[in-house]
Design a binder for these strands. Sequence first.
DNA 1: AAGCTGACCAACCGCGCCGAT
DNA 2: TATCGGCGCGGTTGGTCAGCT
Length: 224
Amino acid sequence: MGRTPCCDKANVKKGPWSPEEDNKLKEFIEKYGTGGNWIALPHKAGLRRCGKSCRLRWLNYLRPNIKHGEFSPDEDMIICNLFANIGSRWSVIAAQLPGRTDNDIKNYWNTKLKKRVLGITSTTTTSSSSHERINKPPIQMSSSSSSSLNTSTVFQTASLQQYYKMEDINGSVLMFGSDYNQNVDLGNYIFGGVLPYDHHNVYEDEFSQLFTNSSHEGAGKFMY
DNA sequence: AAGCTGACCAACCGCGCCGAT
DNA sequence: TATCGGCGCGGTTGGTCAGCT
């Protein structure tokens, strides 16, 4: 038993879209719209494609006002802030970035942005100072508020002049910084995407407590 | 020049949600 | 209320390309 297939897999084409297919889909939707039924659309448009595939192609590449290419520093900022607060809800993040798709943002995060952040958190010297978004090399701090706090890294974004602090606590990460004021338990990780850096000390104990009291199984894992 | 490796990204897969019946 | 079908989403895969050995 399993889930009923959304289409006849044997009779649909898979793989990269040809320019002809793109044109067919684009022209059909511009003329008739989606009709609120993606499953029926490929047949009507004369395409041997799964409805889901058509939807994806339209949403990610063919619809008007799609923005491709480099992400700006401000877009980076927004993605980092939102990810810190709501996690991998790419569609919500995409809604804050006009012209960007959830798939685009997801790929960008997974291939580039995540590595940047990781590079910062795992670096204990100046090796990450070459990063374009950091105008202040990460520095090591010793924690004053709790013996469970091992190391921490502070960095400052170039565009918004904000400070972040990322704490490695028992192998997981707490992240302070930006201008959000809620903590999000992401399962394996706790993010406090929070607080102007000036005020982080006020909350360190609270975050430590939050982590200590957390019942999730992810304790001990580092961020990605 | 050829083979290998890693980065990037388009596309697919399967699950959860929700509205219709 | 239960079931079904379609949509939307996030995770993952696989193809391509560039850089390195």
